[in-house]
């Protein structure tokens, strides 16, 4: 792994591993819409990671962080993204929030670890990122202190993540071609905000998603079973089945969503019917694993 990380530097170079920023002028010209931000918040599933462990109901809007994510690269702790001035992101500018979400870059100019799914969020429009920032500012401030990640060498060299980003940042869409407007909306929600590929797509040795096996299922990180294949050939549900599942959590057998998907459905249940139908329409055009 040390060699691999070294190879990333050699392959990509030190200079190009520097963190990037969005266009400040462009960002400042956008008028934030907190209501739109609320939909982005639920589509992006922010609360699933950033609320306190075991939070439910209204507590899910208290984004003090603290949940632990054990991975083969180390254990990551979700940070406080509540509008608390010191403990959270209350002091951040809109540009800083948008850079975090879309570029995976902190206000201090560091790369975030990709436990934060910015490689998916990179697809978000600036309007959505700015509006999300406005919505986050309406939530309660929480004073919980951030817990440092427990990551060992060489993964603790954050600069190496610049190379990781270069190698695995997605450019453009995974599913391309002539899409209907509805399919395009679904693609935006699935490939972008919904970051479905982070769990439903297998990864390579360096933790990059395998785009040739897009949404074709992956081993479950908790070690039990597999996360299902949700491509058109892998998931036999109708579009109506998918939309209903994302709304009420009922499977076609009228059992309920299990495991992590129960949390996901909590979020997708807040979306509009049109958005859930768009997700279903998109999933029906995702080709099976090559």
């Amino acid at each position: 792994m040390v060699l691999l990380v070294g190879a990333i530097f050699v392959a990509t170079g030190w200079g190009v591993t520097a963190p990037r920023s969005l266009d400040e002028v462009r960002i400042s010209s956008i008028i934030p819409d907190p209501e739109r931000g609320r939909m982005v918040f639920y589509a992006g599933g922010c609360a699933s990671c950033h609320s306190a462990p075991d939070a439910s109901g209204e507590e899910k809007l208290h984004l003090g962080g603290g949940r632990a994510f054990a991975t083969e690269f180390g254990t990551f702790y979700a940070p406080n993204i509540s509008p608390h001035m010191e403990a959270g992101i209350g002091g951040w500018s809109t540009l800083e929030i948008a850079n975090a979400v879309i570029k995976g870059t902190s206000p201090g100019g560091q790369h975030y670890y990709p436990a934060f799914p910015y490689t998916s969020y990179a697809q978000a429009t600036l309007e959505d990122a700015v509006s999300l920032g406005a919505f986050l500012r309406t939530l309660p401030a929480v004073s919980s202190q951030n817990k440092p990640h427990d990551v060992s060498f060489p993964f603790n060299i954050r600069r190496s993540l610049g190379g990781w980003k270069l190698l695995f940042a997605r450019r453009g869409w995974v599913v391309d071609g002539n899409l209907t407007e509805q399919q395009m909306r679904g693609r935006y929600l699935v490939e972008g905000l919904g970051h479905c590929g982070e769990c439903h797509t297998d990864r390579n040795a360096l933790g990059g998603t395998r785009l040739d096996a897009w949404l074709a299922g992956a081993p479950n990180p908790n070690g039990k079973g597999r996360i299902p294949d949700i491509t058109a050939s892998g998931l036999k549900w109708t579009e109506g089945d998918i939309a209903e599942y994302l709304k009420s959590g009922f499977t076609p057998d009228f059992d309920t969503a299990g495991g992590e998907m129960a949390d996901v459905v909590e979020n997708t249940s807040k979306l509009t019917d049109a958005d859930r139908e768009a997700i279903a329409a998109y999933l029906k055009i995702v080709p099976g694993s090559k």
Partner: peptide
């Protein structure tokens, strides 16, 4: 009314039922 029903079923399943494998 489907959403409320699904949410109620799911709340208990999530807390007290092992995931299907």
């Amino acid at each position: 009314a489907m959403g409320g029903l699904g949410g109620a079923c799911q709340a208990c399943h999530k807390a007290y039922r092992a995931p299907d494998e």
